[in-house]
């Protein structure tokens, strides 16, 4: 291989490491070496940046903890709803969206908690705790004074609350957790994040999870702002790499 081809080969390797959720520079020596090279070698850095931009990937963070990427609109690396859970109903999509936001908010409720050092471990979370957390917030939202709610979307709000209450009522059906109950959905969400290297299982028997350093980094340097932008209705940076 020529010099440039060798650099491109190594650039591909670095991006491949970044795309594997469970790989960390602490466990793969080559990954750590490539990260160091990315920091120190400007030619290597421009080739890595060029390749990943071409693939529709943007950098969330690049430190000794790893190279963290996010997929822009149109990227083949973008998660589709079916990658998350197959054959979801419209209602399930709504609830799973809330659950993902709730996991982030449960782990890092305030800016100062999110702003702690990258390797500080957040609170433990279980599917049951998370479902209860969502229920409390949903109830608080439901009891807001009518003056605060917009009469135009009251029907929409009702549908929302009904979806949530249906999921909540499934909790105890037959004394067994249903995958369509709120707790069951929370478990799926946490398991999915665990597969993405963003959660770790602390206690399998009691289903205790905890956000990883990668999860904090993703939220702190990318997701928190993007979610806020999304809430405000402005286009997110996902539109462009």
């Amino acid at each position: 291989m020529s010099g440039l081809a060798t650099i491109a080969h190594d650039a591909g390797k670095l991006i491949a490491f970044a795309l594997r959720p469970r790989q960390t520079p602490w466990t793969a020596r080559e990954y750590a070496d490539l990260l160091r090279r990315y920091e120190e070698d400007s030619q290597f850095r421009s080739i890595v940046d060029g390749v990943r931009e071409g693939m529709g990937l943007r950098i969330v963070d690049a430190t000794r903890n790893g190279l963290f990427l996010a997929a822009a609109e149109g990227s083949p690396f973008r998660l589709a709803a079916d990658d998350y859970k197959q054959n979801m109903t419209a209602q399930e999509r709504v609830l799973h969206g809330v659950i993902q936001i709730a996991i982030a908010a449960f782990s890092f409720p305030k800016a100062d908690v999110l702003d702690q050092e990258d390797n500080v471990a957040p609170a433990h979370v279980t599917p049951v705790k998370l479902a209860e957390y969502i229920r409390q917030f949903a109830e608080a939202e439901a009891t807001r004074s009518p003056a605060e709610t917009n009469s135009d979307d009251s029907a929409e709000r009702r549908a929302w609350r009904e979806a949530l209450s249906r999921a909540l009522t499934m909790e105890t059906s037959g004394g067994k957790e249903s995958a369509r109950s709120l707790t069951g959905m929370c478990r799926h969400a946490l398991d999915f994040l665990e597969g993405q290297g963003l959660m770790r299982v602390v206690d399998e028997e009691n289903a205790v999870y905890q956000g990883t350093t990668a999860y904090r980094i993703r939220l702190k340097y990318h997701a928190a702002h993007e979610l806020l932008t999304l809430m405000r209705g402005a286009p997110t940076s996902g539109a462009n790499p």
Binding site: R78, V94, H96, G97, E141, W160, L228, L230
Partner: peptide, 28 residues
């Protein structure tokens, strides 16, 4: 984020799902 999300109309919440998933849950 969470409170406004819960207060938002269902249609908007459903449409935001894919974006939120990609923002929060990493890459495919």
């Amino acid at each position: 984020v969470l409170l406004p999300w819960l207060a938002s109309p269902t249609v908007e919440a459903r449409e935001r799902f894919a974006s939120a998933l990609n923002i929060v849950a990493g890459v495919y």
